[in-house]
Amino acid sequence: MKLVKGVARVLGGGIVLLGIVGSGAQAAGDEAGAALTPEASWALSNAEAAVALAQSNGVLWTTAAAALAQAQEAAKKQDSVAVIAHAATASEQASLGMGQLAYPLMGRY
């Protein structure tokens, strides 16, 4: 009986241990990670181009520049989900900045 309990404990521990090792391996895989997903790389290069265009037209929002910086940071960590989110903000705001060029002028002159 003692033996059975002991085996069960060892087995149980082993399963838990396997679980830990398994999830650890998974986490390590994410960090050292495979490259960004194609969607994330595409979103990032899109955002970089949009921000560069806005910058060269003098209409780049500080918030768009900051979002791009966050996307680039996330890319270094291979965090595709965060890359896509920040890149989307950067691209959207860069194009809103470009859109301001077509607004009617403001103020009397």
């Binding site: 003098g58 607004y103 403001m106 002159y109």
Partner: peptide, 10 residues
């Protein structure tokens, strides 16, 4: 003049 009167920034 355009730069002075054009909306810019967030």
């Amino acid at each position: 003049k355009r730069l002075f009167h054009q909306r810019r920034g967030q």
